[in-house]
Amino acid sequence: MLELRLVQGSLLKKVLDAIKDLVTDANFDCSESGFSLQAMDSSHVALVALLLRSDGFEHYRCDRNLSMGMNLTNMSKMLKCAGNDDIITIKADDGGDSVTFMFESPSQDKVSDFEMKLMDIDSEHLGIPETEYHAIVKMPSAEFARICRDLSTIGDTVVISVSKDGVKFSTSGDIGSANVVCRQNNSVDNKDNETVIEMNEPVSLTFALRYLNSFTKATTLSNTVTLSMSKELPVVVEYKIAEIGHIRFYLAPKIED
């Protein structure tokens, strides 16, 4: 028996909006520690890892570990039927072939339930080791989204370079080239507006902008984003989800021939 009650149901709606274009089908894994998902995009270039910790739910009952295969397009269709202020409860029986999403309006005067069929998904689960990254950049998520969107009008790839001077985003294409440099700044009145760079050694990696743009669909989940980079490793683009967890996107770099 599984019963997870999330008071801030809009978070789940935003999570689905953030990943449904990158991943079609995925297994949601439920254990006593939390509700999680790990999935790759169809070309296996990017990986998304979601964690919603059990203590972030108002009520969290998970009698035994459960993996529920869901089509994210269909799940998103159902969650779109929840109001932004609604409380969402996810319910499933052990060994059942469906999941129920229950939506309660804040004043409790409207209660809906939507039952969705589960599917068998044969997915690979990758082990992601804890890594000390060469450079970690924390910046406003809207700024990162703006840069990715702007640069993708010029080129297909971006070189992200972190040095003591700041973080530089560079692209080039048929019509020309562009560089955006963000320097470390400290905002006295609003930590969310800060750009903070922790660097052990300079790092420069090339990525497909198409994927980074897809990741920025998570911008509504957090005011800040963290980019963790090491030489010859996938970048980690992380959005914290309120007090409850995180969504991390891993993107393999492009290597020059």
């Binding site: 790759m40 070309s43 296996h44 270039v45 990758l126 492009k254 290597i255 020059e256 021939d257």
Partner: peptide, 14 residues
């Protein structure tokens, strides 16, 4: 020219 790696080149299967 650049080559797009896959994520599976970096992480092993659990």
């Amino acid at each position: 020219a650049s080559f797009q790696n896959t994520i599976k080149m970096y992480f092993d299967e659990d």
